[in-house]
Design a protein around this nucleic acid. Sequence first.
RNA 1: GCCGUCGUAGCUCAGUAGGUAGAGCGCAUCCUUGGUAAGGAUGAGGUCACCGGUUCAAUCCCGGUCGAUGGCUCCA
Length: 586
Amino acid sequence: MNIEKARHSLAHVLAEAVQRLFPDAKLGMGPAIENGFYYDFDTEEKISSEDLKKIQKEMKKILKKKNTEFEYIEVSIEEAISMFSEKKEHLKLELIEDLKAQGEEKLGIFKQGNWFDLCRGPHVEKMKDLPFKGFKLDRVAGAYWKSDEKNKMLTRIYGLAFEDADKLNDFIEKREEARKRDHRKLGKELEIFAFSDLVGKGLPLLLPKGATLRRVLERFIVDEELRRGYEHVITPVLGKVDLYKVSGHWDHYKDSMYNPIDIEGEEFVLRPMTCPHHFEIYKNNQHSYNDLPRRFAEISSLFRFEKSGELSGLIRLRNFTLADAHIICTQQQMKKEFKDVLILLKYIMDSLGISEKVWYRASLRDDEKGKYVDNDEMWEQSEKVLLEILDELGWKYEISRGDAAFYGPKLDIQIQNVNGKDDTIITNQIDLFLAERFQLEYIDSDGEKKRPVIIHRSSVGCLERTMAFLIEHYAGALPLWLSPVQIRLLSIADRMNDYVEEVYEKLQSRGIRVEKDIRNEKLGKKIREARLMRIPYLAIVGQTEMDNKTLTIRNRNTGEQKEYSLDEFIDRIILEENKKSLELEL
RNA sequence: GCCGUCGUAGCUCAGUAGGUAGAGCGCAUCCUUGGUAAGGAUGAGGUCACCGGUUCAAUCCCGGUCGAUGGCUCCA
């Protein structure tokens, strides 16, 4: 079975079924997609998810006429117009006009019985070629006509479709499994973060364990950056509107910024970016070419306006924390600097254990006017350099037009979330534009003032988003070095409490993240609860351990246990942490 | 923001074809001091998201608001 054809054909069957049940529904577009198909309808009568069963039944009725053919005919533009006028299919008529404008003369129509649709195909031959039990209507959603927010919202019905019932059920099961790793679910269960209606949506509260995870990432990256010649700075979350007028954000990025705040007659905004602040740091003094590159880094709290429907757990927020930096260097240094950034990123991905999961995307501009700064020469040059660097490193990447920043092309690192959607985890840009806007300069060897170039880059990305992906990637079972709690001490009976306390203090004093459970409960219960919290190592303390001054260590992943002297355990734990091992080694 | 769905105890959820609610976990107290995924008993805890409307009566029906969620748009 050609599943693509089947999915596309099922979309037509769906459309016919909907029009039988909702005669006023007009046709939009209905393609095959990954895992299934959809069809968009313009309808006054509301179609709700309650109606899906009914529609699916109607589809099965159509499918039962097994010998109905999908018949292809070619018609002239005029014939097509008259056919769809008769059915009052205004959206199809609009498509016909578009095709006409593109110079098409003949149009394809697919007929199934008396019902027909404008379509170039391909389709299966007959109804009996479709998987009667391999499809299922999935959900109702809204979708803008021609994907444009300014257009009318249509009702889209999504269906899943596979070769047979087994494959369909397999997919549904896998999807449910994946959702168990959802960082929003695990974040709650593992006490990582919460939201409060009173604080506001998109504004996360990091609970103690979440704050710990963030601090671990933060310390990791700050230390690493300092080792690699970055200078960490701290700048305010507010800045004058004028600052963003100079940077061009006010023109190109205003829709993503919050309304200005009036302070004694001056207008301030919450910052969506740190770049302008860092440029002002650069301008604090004069620079010689000998001083470049300067690499200003900051763990920066940013505020971006997201429409309420776009918010999603820790992945899309209104306030988040970017591990940000701006490298200001000469033209000649740019390539090396950008390569060094990529090498750092590779190291980070390796350390976090997600190298295998991410892919690279070169985001270039498209031809949409007004979206980017108007300077063709600059764009051509920076896009060329970006691709050169990637080719020189030999990294595989895909090109995405239209995803560039307004001031330059990006190299994005992409990752897939638990719902199968792609997100950017890290982004870097080459910027030949803002140095001019901010009048950044350095004195070159010939004594002349020159413009530096700027690399915008992130390292561990947005801490909150990165945390979300780590939680999903590891299903909550983080490696030791990232775990908010590394060890939990489990006592067997009250008389061990003093020894537990002694061990607890000793581990804590060595910087190990430790918890103790000395409740009056059975060991089995304590183990169960600690396992649900995905704690890497459980240290069981009973009479034997107390007498021998040891701990029995139970490994989260294997369930195996070994007895260690306290000192040996501490040494080995610290070793494992320092190695940033992705496996539990004890 | 828009279209669909959802909102009952701290958490996970049941329930009422309209007569002001229930379980398990958690919490408190007590018994138990138990060696590898839930020991037992008792008890506290809810303006059924919020605001209006219909009704003798609303957690349930209707309208609005807020929040969450699957899409669309957007995006780190």
